[in-house]
Design a protein around this nucleic acid. Structure first.
Lengths: 178, 178
DNA sequence: TATTGTTATACTCTATAACTATA
DNA sequence: TATAGTTATAGAGTATAACAATA
């Protein structure tokens, strides 16, 4: 995919255009794949009235019962100001409880309720079926390769960490303009 | 690759928690990689006052001079209602021109201006340096493998197409609730 | 002084609906 | 009737700032 041929373009219907070199760029391919995969994830989790973010929060609480809001927010890179209303919604649905901590009275310890555990179990099974559909497309070896490659691309870039190697502020990078 | 010193975390009374099984899920890994890669892309393109979306629009117009708004919007999956103000911004900066079409007086033919071509050339060179940084992490063979795997994951899912196989509405999937 | 958690708020993306002018 | 393009607007998601309680 190099130079577009003007005659070929004329020969085509004028609707048939391509993205050109964009197609071979990692960022563009990553974004398209992520949107495509998430379209399915979102549809799957919507059956349980869960967004991907809520599903990930429930999963992390299940794996780390008693963790605080800041712990869970940090590992998922959700800012505290956005985490509070998300947690409110989960607590109002009786999926999660905030219990006062005795050691540090500023924090709450987070736990799944029985209802939360049951819902998450069902959602996780559906999510696994979704994952199986993806593996059917790329194979088990493709999955292993992909996770390895993605992990090597996922790094804290130089712009997002301070001199001590810790993320600045609230775990995220500074905003940039358009 | 995240926290260099576990004791530093304890000093801040942070609990060492992990994301559990989430780590091995394709969707989660995809999203984290995409955000990480885009953080760099956004920073690179911000030097030229371009968002990834604007960069992609300029690129597609360069590869398809004379294409219409709906053509470009369709191939990039940008809805027409969102495409109009985006084009306005590019035209106000004298990077793109809308020329009236004689064949179909409803449409405009889009072209880069000389200024647009020059800016896009510089932005593309910076974007290539960004791409080279990514390839340095995964190798050229890793890049080829990755693009192949991502392409196989990028599909029009069953939920997004009508019975005739064509995307519904405005090229995108129906909205789902939280 | 620093951190946890909350609220208020703003900005960006992306979505739908309604409209026009053409076809 | 259907499509190209515009405008208005609403909803997510995500950002900052300021604050109270606690460390």
């Amino acid at each position: 995919m190099r130079e577009p041929d003007p005659r070929a373009r004329q020969a085509r219907s004028e609707r048939a255009i391509g993205v050109g070199r964009l197609q071979d760029q990692i960022g563009y391919a990553l974004r398209r794949a992520q949107l495509s995969v998430f379209a399915d994830i979102i549809a799957v989790l919507a059956e349980f009235d869960l967004s991907p973010a809520k599903f990930s929060v429930l999963s992390v609480i299940r794996e780390n019962p008693g963790a605080s809001s800041s712990d869970v927010g940090r590992v998922l890179e959700i800012r505290k100001a956005n985490f509070a209303p998300l947690l409110d919604a989960l607590e109002q649905r009786d999926l999660v409880v905030r219990r006062a901590s005795e050691e540090d009275r500023r924090t709450f310890a987070l736990y799944l309720t029985p209802k939360g555990r049951a819902l998450l179990a069902r959602a996780t099974r559906a999510q696994c079926r979704h994952e199986a559909r993806l593996v059917a497309r790329i194979g088990e070896s493709g999955r292993v390769q992909l996770l390895e490659l993605l992990d090597r691309l996922t790094q804290v870039s130089a712009a997002t960490v301070g001199a001590d190697g810790r993320p600045e502020e609230d775990t995220k990078r500074p905003a940039r303009k358009a």
